[in-house]
């Protein structure tokens, strides 16, 4: 008896869902003038695991995982990636990730050195701040496997970054994506320069 009721309700629900998928898809395609066509509305950001398209919604474990929105609610926002400004979050101690597996009080050594890289054209020059990076990383994350710690030794191009090399090892994967041009290209050229 019980199982019959369960099955009946489940099938009605499933039918409704399938129907709704079609209606939804049809509407989305039919309306070329939908508002903010290319902008992901906030409601679709940071989906909970069970509806993010990669977790199996029927697995028990999926439902035990924390939905990202729960964690991100109090963190500073950004326009892309996780929609969290992680460097601001750590700077303002809104997140305090451990730098040592066992010792919650261990302090990472933060290294305050800026490197400016000039680029051709009217694109602003790149400022690389060691400080924001060493709040998360250790020298050995990057040196010498990704960057040789020597002036002039590293040929970095956007092509290589887009191929997932150099900065692209992290940026575009976990750190803010390369679409955020101005967060790196942040030092405008002097006005009198051609």
């Amino acid at each position: 008896m019980i199982s019959l009721r369960t099955r009946a309700i489940t099938s009605i629900g499933l039918l409704a869902s399938i129907l709704a998928v079609f209606v939804h898809a049809a509407v989305a395609q039919d309306n070329p003038n939908a508002f903010n066509r290319l902008m992901k509305p906030p409601s679709e950001r940071n989906a909970p695991p069970e509806s993010d398209g990669i977790h199996d919604p029927t697995a028990d474990g999926t439902l035990m995982l924390q939905p990202p929105q729960e964690s991100f609610a109090g963190l500073p926002k950004s326009r892309s990636g996780n929609y969290v400004n992680w460097s601001k979050a750590i700077e303002n101690e809104l997140v305090t990730p451990r730098s040592d597996i066992h010792d919650p009080d261990a302090q990472a050594i933060v290294f305050d050195l800026n490197i400016i890289r000039e680029v051709k054209g009217s694109m602003p020059d790149v400022v690389y701040p060691h400080k924001q990076h060493t709040q998360w990383l250790d020298c050995s994350n990057c040196h010498p496997a990704i960057f040789i710690p020597m002036k002039g030794a590293n040929q970095i191009s956007m092509a290589s970054i887009l191929m997932g090399e150099k900065c692209g090892v992290c940026h575009g994967k976990v750190a803010f994506p390369v679409s955020e041009c101005r967060r790196c290209h942040s030092k405008p050229k002097p006005v009198d320069q051609p």
Binding site: I12, G13, A20, A28, Q29, N31, P32, F35
Partner: peptide, 22 residues
């Protein structure tokens, strides 16, 4: 980057019914 929109009202009604059942 296909065009996306919120669910239509009929879709919303269906969701509502589903919600109710759930």
């Amino acid at each position: 980057m296909r065009s996306k929109s919120r669910p239509s009202s009929s879709a919303k009604a269906l969701i509502f019914i589903s919600l109710f059942i759930a």
